[in-house]
Simulated scan of single mutants.
Amino acid sequence: MANWSDPRSTGAPYAAGTATEAGAVDAGLRSYMLTVYNFMMSGVLLTGIVAMFFASSGAISMLYNTQTGGASGLGWIVMLSPLAIVFAMSFGMNKMSKGTLQALFWGFAVLMGASLSSIFLVYTSASIASVFFATAAGFAGLSLYGYTTKRDLGPIGTFLIMGLFGLIVAMLLNAFIFQSQEGSMIISALGVLIFAGLTAYDTQKIKSMYFQVSHNGELQSKVEIMGALTLYLDFINMFLFLLRLFGSQRS
């Protein structure tokens, strides 16, 4: 989940005064959400293509030791670069142009693909594919719920964001101190639940942003890209946690 928000996005969505206005709002909202989903799905597809290329071409050996799975110096740079891009996009959105944000988004997707190529060293291709499609189905249902529900998911989202910070702390403690396999499974299960909830929450948040930015074409375009980044992160994190739970490791 990307930590972004537009400082001008305050107040409740406006209500259309006539049937014609309501129809225009609905059409604009559908176009806006479709653009968000197209960016998000294109980013996921690009990441997958890059990951498979690195794994199948042998280029992965530049990033990871194919025997131990340990990262090289270049591998660490590739793994950390997407995080730097997320921070740059989140905190610099209002100062960047639409073109710059788009370039950063595609660059982020490519670097994530190179970074995630390491999963092919650990898990079988068949299990990666099955978990991916299961994640896609779950994501679609959760995002649809977030888009259609009349319930305000804001309070739940706040709780989930707090849980996400706790999850990160737990992951670091387990990785460097406890190193517990059982703890890793519990963390993965919690990660799936947290990002499942965030998928619905973020979808509702992105939808509500439309009513605040639809008057400004440039700003709306930026919000579409940032919304796609947020949903991309929800999808990828849910996929990785599910893979840790259900993926079949290579012998």
Rank of each mutant, 00 (worst) to 15 (best):
Val110Glu: 11
Asn174Lys: 05
Ala189Gln: 02
Ile156Asn: 07
Asp152Tyr: 02
Ser81Met: 15
Ile156Pro: 02
Thr135Gln: 11
Phe105Cys: 02
Ala71Ser: 14
Val110Gln: 10
Thr199Tyr: 10
Phe120Tyr: 15
Ala88Val: 13
Phe133Cys: 00
Val86Gln: 14
Phe139Trp: 03
Phe176His: 06
Gln179Phe: 05
Ala88Ile: 13
Ala84Glu: 04
Trp106Phe: 15
Ile128Met: 05
Phe159Pro: 00
Thr199Trp: 02
Gly154Lys: 15
Pro82Phe: 09
Ala137Cys: 03
Ile77Tyr: 10
Val86Asp: 06
Phe105Asp: 02
Thr203Asp: 11
Ile128Gln: 09
Gln181Asn: 08
Ile177Lys: 09
Leu164Asp: 02
Met79Leu: 14
Ile194Phe: 05
Val110Gly: 11
Glu182Arg: 12
Thr158Val: 10
Gly99Thr: 05
Asp202Glu: 10
Ser127His: 06
Gly92Ser: 12
Ser115Gly: 09
Phe120His: 14
Ala126Pro: 02
Gln102Val: 12
Met171Pro: 11
Ala88Lys: 12
Thr68Phe: 01
Gly154Trp: 08
Leu111Asp: 09
Pro82Leu: 02
Thr149Val: 06
Lys98Asp: 06
Ser90Cys: 03
Ser90Val: 01
Tyr147Thr: 06
Ala140Gly: 07
Phe139Ile: 03
Ser180Arg: 03
Phe105Ala: 00
Ala71Trp: 03
Pro155Arg: 05
Met162Gln: 00
Gly92Asp: 07
Phe176Trp: 13
Ala170Tyr: 09
Tyr123Ile: 09
Thr100Phe: 09
Ser117Ile: 07
Phe139Leu: 00
Gly113Met: 06
Leu116Asp: 00
Ala126Leu: 09
Thr68His: 10
Pro82Ala: 04
Ser81Pro: 03
Ser118Asp: 04
Gly191Leu: 13
Met96Lys: 03
Met112Ala: 05
Ala109Trp: 01
Ser143Leu: 05
Thr148Ala: 03
Gly92Lys: 04
Asn94Phe: 04
Ser180Met: 00
Gly69Lys: 01
Gly138Trp: 13
Phe139Asn: 04
Met89Ile: 08
Gly154Arg: 12
Asn94Ser: 14
Gly154Asp: 12
Gln102Trp: 15
Ser130Gly: 04
Thr148Leu: 14
Ser118Phe: 14
Gly107Leu: 08
Gly70Lys: 11
Ser115Pro: 07
Pro82Trp: 04
Ile161Thr: 15
